[in-house]
């Protein structure tokens, strides 16, 4: 079997991979915290988050803190599975070339 086939295309993007890495270890995290951690602009981060949401890898929760909107994100079961699968694929490729 072609080992590259196991790599998830969605995670070719460094930013999406970064978002998933953060969500794996943090239960729920706000848009602003994500932006700060990844050092991105609003628009850039938003478009990647949309892609991840459309694929069912992350969940969006819209809420309010006072009058300000506070959007938070968390990883879904299928997102977790996809991310772990991607990691395993990466590890296997490193092992197989040794």
């Amino acid at each position: 079997m072609n080992p590259i086939g196991n790599l998830n295309k969605l995670f070719d993007s460094r930013i999406r991979l970064g978002v998933m890495s953060i969500l794996m270890v943090n239960g729920e995290i706000s848009f602003n915290d994500l932006k700060q951690m990844l050092e991105l602009t609003d628009g850039n981060l938003a478009s990647h988050l949309n892609t991840l949401e459309e694929n069912g890898y992350i969940k969006v929760h819209k809420g309010f803190v006072g009058r300000k909107t506070n959007t938070t994100y968390s990883i879904t079961k299928s997102g977790e599975k996809a991310f772990k699968g991607h990691l395993t694929a990466l590890e296997n490729m490193i092992k197989s070339t040794r």
Partner: peptide, 22 residues
């Protein structure tokens, strides 16, 4: 992508996880 890039990706992931949770 070659082996070196995969290793870098993995260590980036580890670093981001570390930095975002601690």
């Amino acid at each position: 992508m070659n082996e070196q890039q995969h290793l870098e990706t993995l260590s980036d992931i580890k670093r981001i996880m570390e930095r975002s949770s601690r």
